[in-house]
Design a protein around this nucleic acid. Structure first.
Lengths: 337, 337
DNA sequence: TTGTAAGCGTTATCAC
DNA sequence: GTGATAACGCTTACAA
């Protein structure tokens, strides 16, 4: 059996000083005579001392730890955000708890509770699927919260939101399709509880209304945000109505799925049918035809979320980060400029 | 300012019992009279008591927390594994620190150190890029380790390895291509320090040797495991040597990149050129032509890794999990059966 | 069945 | 500059 790792007091004993001196040296805090500092450092290295952050956290009430809560880390949109969060956390000396909730509000609640119990300094919550009341309750457990793509009616100084302007993104996309004389534009929407899906739906309807186009409810379908669901849903739609000439998809996974369905139906893209997605996942650029898409700077958003929490920790400094992100239109073959 | 959250002793005071009684109730441990239990629970709920796991961890020397260390969470192979780990962790009441190291051994070392300081109960380390000496040193910081796709010369009872049989996977793939009379088989290999890439290279060479095929060093190219690198490298290869008639790729991202390059060169797949990849990422099934691939049960591997750590914690020692995984051949259009 | 006391490894506070 | 002592919130071990 290996013996327990050395503690502050082990080092202190061996160095012939008090624990506080060792603590000061380790944390570079307070005054310590250079010689004793050297000596302590030498002993610490000798015995292989490592600070115990659990003990430190208990004493300081700071865990240098945050939680990142996402619907599904295998979705490229969220894994990019996660990368941004984690990279920034690494720079700042933080660690990140990753939690998936699989579009399941109950699991979302569970993981939030467990993160609170682990005393995280804050959380980044993406695309919450809880209703406002539940959500407000859950978030009360935390000192600092950054919400990505979800706004709370009664914001507080502990809760910041980073908003993606999905409403205007969808509106822009539909107007682009209309300018190409598209007549039957289908919306492959996302999960029913998704705030983002809701905004995109509103944008889609707003564009149609603005141009006095009648809206057929059959043209909106909800899907889980996966390629396979996009393909299946699109196949079904094309079977019922071969006159569809454009698709706006909740995300690129759905858009690509739809495109694969079109290929099977012999629909030529973009001549016979145009497709626009959201997110600009890596694949969208490489596939042929390339997917036209609306996107946000995902890594940057993750990084900003982490920075905001970090700043909130240290008594709200300036917080001069962008809080809302306009979609960027990227034109590729599936719906050219 | 919100007041601090209530502690065990707050609850004890208000309930008129000792801290230990409350502790017993909260943890369902030891004997407590049903009536007092009810009463304590009621008070706890009233004041909104939540256990502080930092304090608990310090007392028990268990953090119910593990670290998951991967090269890059945006790679679908690792995000699937991460999903498996996290799902199982959720079931077992654990939380998971996610760390990327971006193929950078120094960062890998850093994150391992920080995880040790956070007192994780164990780590799951995927595709380490450290050399054996460094690695052995880093792993010494942990009580329990599961290595995915990396074996240590001197294994210990604290370190378990889950091995993917990439050698035989590559060998099988090449033999399959040879059975189709392919003459010039290119290997798009992975990062130079990758254990997995090394094994696949050995398998590739072994198959050629077994069938007395001369090996041309120009036919092995190292790539970073991304679609774009696959496409660029394949373009370059085809430019130099249009007689290439088969590709074995380190992973499906590279395979798909290679396929896109072939399409640009007008190479007909699979008639003129066959492609085989590894990992069976979701896209490989959906794209046309589908990518033939060798795969492992990624979520299951993640789940098993977490279970192993959990069992090691409780000296359960049954540990009757599979430790080595044979690749499963999935035939699609890019290299039919 | 319940309570008391010590201790987990660190930092805050205040004295020297 | 340095050190003693009391927290931090919980559990372990033992006593009642």
């Amino acid at each position: 059996m290996k013996k327990n790792s050395p503690t502050l007091s082990d080092v202190a004993l061996k160095a012939g000083v008090s624990m506080m001196t060792v603590s000061r040296v380790i944390n570079n805090k307070g005054k310590v005579k250079p010689e004793t500092r050297e000596h302590v450092l030498k002993i610490a290295a000798e015995v292989g001392y490592r600070p115990n952050y659990i003990a430190r956290s208990l004493a300081t009430k700071r865990s240098t730890t945050i939680g990142l809560v996402v619907p599904d880390i295998t979705n490229p949109f969220f894994s990019e955000i996660a990368k941004g969060v984690e990279d920034e956390a690494y720079r700042l000396g933080y660690n990140v708890f990753l939690c998936n909730f699989d579009e399941n509000p109950e699991r979302e609640f569970d993981v939030l509770t467990s993160l609170a119990e682990k005393q995280v300094d804050g959380i980044v919550l993406c695309s919450s699927r809880q209703n406002n009341k539940q959500l407000y309750h859950s978030l009360g457990l935390f000192k600092h919260v950054v919400l990505i793509n979800r706004q709370l009616p009664a914001p507080s100084h502990t809760i910041q939101s980073l908003i993606l302007d999905d409403f205007n993104g969808a509106k822009l996309a539909v107007e682009h399709l209309l300018s190409h004389k598209r007549k039957r534009i289908v919306l492959l929407s996302g999960p029913k509880q998704s705030h983002s899906a809701f905004q995109k739906e509103k944008g889609y309807l707003a564009a149609l209304k603005k141009h006095n186009i009648a809206h057929d409810p059959e043209q909106i379908k909800h899907c889980s945000p996966t390629m396979i669901c996009g393909k299946d849903t699109m196949s079904m739609l094309l079977k019922n109505d071969p006159t569809i000439d454009a698709v706006l998809a909740f995300n690129d996974l759905l858009a690509i799925g739809a495109m694969l369905a079109c290929q099977e139906f012999g629909k030529i893209i973009p001549q016979e049918l145009e497709i626009i997605g959201f997110d600009d996942i890596p694949l969208s650029k490489l596939i042929i035809p390339g997917i036209t898409t609306l996107t946000y700077p995902k890594k940057e958003i993750g990084s900003i979320a982490m920075k905001i929490i970090y700043q909130m920790m240290d008594q709200d400094i300036s917080l001069d980060f962008p809080k809302t992100f306009a979609p960027q239109f990227i034109f590729r073959q599936s719906s050219p400029k």
